[in-house]
Design a protein around this nucleic acid. Sequence first.
DNA 1: GTCTATAGTCTGATAGAC
DNA 2: GTCTATCAGACTATAGAC
Lengths: 199, 199
Amino acid sequence: MVTPYRVKQLQMREEAILDAAHVLLGKYGYDAMTMDDVAAEVGIAKASLYKHFESKEKLAASTMVRLFDRTVDQLAALPANLSAYEKLRKMLEWALRERLRGGIPHLPSTSTTLEQSLMTDEPYLASLLSLNAALSLLVEAAKNEGKLSRALPTDYIVTAIYARTCDPTLEYMQRGKNYRDEEIVTHMLDAFFMGVSKA
Amino acid sequence: MVTPYRVKQLQMREEAILDAAHVLLGKYGYDAMTMDDVAAEVGIAKASLYKHFESKEKLAASTMVRLFDRTVDQLAALPANLSAYEKLRKMLEWALRERLRGGIPHLPSTSTTLEQSLMTDEPYLASLLSLNAALSLLVEAAKNEGKLSRALPTDYIVTAIYARTCDPTLEYMQRGKNYRDEEIVTHMLDAFFMGVSKA
DNA sequence: GTCTATAGTCTGATAGAC
DNA sequence: GTCTATCAGACTATAGAC
């Protein structure tokens, strides 16, 4: 029988690996991140990585699953009295802030290879579907509130929300150093909800 | 002295290589595209590729330069009587259609490695700057027409236009098969200019 | 430490311009 | 017939998954 201590150590190490992968995926993207990087960041031997995750693809998938689960949690934690529209706005704002702090985007748009493998990863798909369902409901509700355009299909809007989290505009603005993170988030939210045209 | 015939053959082959790279970059992205793929697509030996382009990075950079130059041409070809706002809309529409037909995005957002090397590629930077200048002028003009929001900085809007051409929403909607390319373009344009909110 | 993938190079054979 | 570009493909070196 395994001692509770060992189990706990394993869980903590797994979290540490996911934290490292999260940071490195955010910084370099999937293709440029190496398993050596991850091992070094965690401070463990590379072989130990493979005790927890059987492949680089699985590690990335697990990192995405944790992100989706956190996103669902975030959604659940919003004040209940907010309108659906306000909730969507808060969610996007949260995701953009996370991204600016070095977090990973909600879409694996940086790598075709990763995308392919995720499409056959059951836990990933399950987690994604669950988040999708929650967001689709919110978008529908916001349409019913008269706050979102009915001309745009719900799945388009949901996808567009995900896409905002991997919008290279974020990095370009941040790299340019002319804008504070606050301003970037405000511009992104305004442009997404109101468009670039004059009201 | 080299015969004109030979020169012409060389130019045609160079175009063919760029065409192949354009298609493959659009389909697989920079990292997943191999030089063997390119050679096979063109139907020439790999060594011959290197007669024209000294490296994969240079090949990608040249492909981007050609895209930027074509974009500038496209801009110049627009009817002179259009407003700046209408020109911007037409340009984005053109870029989105190209992308849906398998073209490459205007930002190298698919690869950190490529991005790094492009940042030190003189011809690439020159071409990008030239397009940037043209687009910035248009955006400013559209603001003066009262058509674009003054709350959003010009460089933000310009970057956001580029970013629309590599928006994964495009591929997701196209992959889903529920929408015709026409509809996707319309939704993208509406969402970009008017936002997702109810007018 | 092993193995695969791939960028980039080299060679000997061949075809086609002149 | 000569010459040069190109070809197919073997080869090297390196990076990185495992």
